[in-house]
Amino acid sequence: MRVLGIDPGTAIVGYGVIDFEKGKYNVVDYGCIYTDKDLPMEQRLCEIYEQLTELIKKYSPEHMAVEELFYFKNNKTVISVGQARGVILLCGQQNGVKIQGYTPLQVKIGITGYGKAEKKQVQLMVQKFLGMKEIPKPDDAADALAIAFTHINSLNSSFGESLNLKLSTKNLPKEKLTAKEYRELLLGK
């Protein structure tokens, strides 16, 4: 199964492509689609559509997982990101890809098991679960990989078995962990 994860935006659209076969994850590609802030919105949306179409044609994903919008303090931002998300959904639909949306909370729970995880904790889990040497950069691409990973595991009933993780939470020192403490927990140090 091949999944394309998308972190929508107008200036930056993160993407991540993951294959999942026989219980193993393989990162195929990740990165970002960038648009120039000085261009009119309709031109930026067109660029997102065209570049995403190229990615879909290049990688032929079966599924596309797209982050749902969450409340922004700036209404103008939520509207523009909503427009970009609409273009992304249209692109996926027109290219015959199965589409599923996930809230930021669902993604955090899906990859860390904790809905209030910090961004750094999500990135560390992406790195660990996908067997990457480094945390993927930029953040938007790491988020897109987390979204694709969450989708794969929402479809895979043997989630725990495929990860082979044995995390103990009985000796957690506090409610909120630093990224270093979280890494130590994961690595069993």
Rank of each mutant, 00 (worst) to 15 (best):
A117G: 03
V81N: 02
I147V: 15
I56Y: 00
R183G: 02
I135T: 14
V17Y: 01
L124E: 15
L177H: 05
L145V: 10
Y34T: 13
A144V: 12
V81C: 04
V17W: 00
G188C: 13
P8A: 11
G9H: 10
G23C: 15
I135F: 08
T150Y: 00
Y25K: 14
V122C: 05
I109Y: 08
G188I: 09
Y59N: 05
K174I: 11
K98T: 09
S60R: 02
I56M: 03
K189L: 12
I79S: 07
C32W: 02
G16P: 11
T35M: 14
E161G: 06
A141D: 06
Y59A: 04
A117C: 04
Q51N: 12
C91A: 12
E134Q: 14
I6E: 14
M41K: 14
G16I: 12
I18A: 04
G82S: 08
P61V: 02
V78C: 10
T150D: 05
L89R: 06
C46P: 00
I135C: 11
A65S: 09
G9S: 15
L69K: 00
P138V: 02
P173L: 07
T178I: 13
Q51H: 12
Y182W: 14
G115V: 13
D7L: 09
N153S: 08
M125C: 13
V126C: 01
Y114D: 10
I12W: 13
I152W: 09
K176P: 06
K120Q: 12
D38C: 08
S162L: 00
D29G: 03
F72A: 06
N75F: 01
V122R: 02
K176E: 15
P40G: 09
N164T: 01
F70G: 04
D36G: 09
N26Y: 08
F159R: 15
K176G: 10
G101K: 07
I135D: 13
K116Q: 09
L185C: 13
N156M: 07
N156T: 12
N171C: 00
A146N: 15
T169Y: 09
L167V: 15
A141I: 03
P173N: 10
P104W: 05
Q121E: 08
A142D: 06
I135K: 11
A146C: 14
F70T: 07
Q94E: 11
T53C: 04
K58A: 10
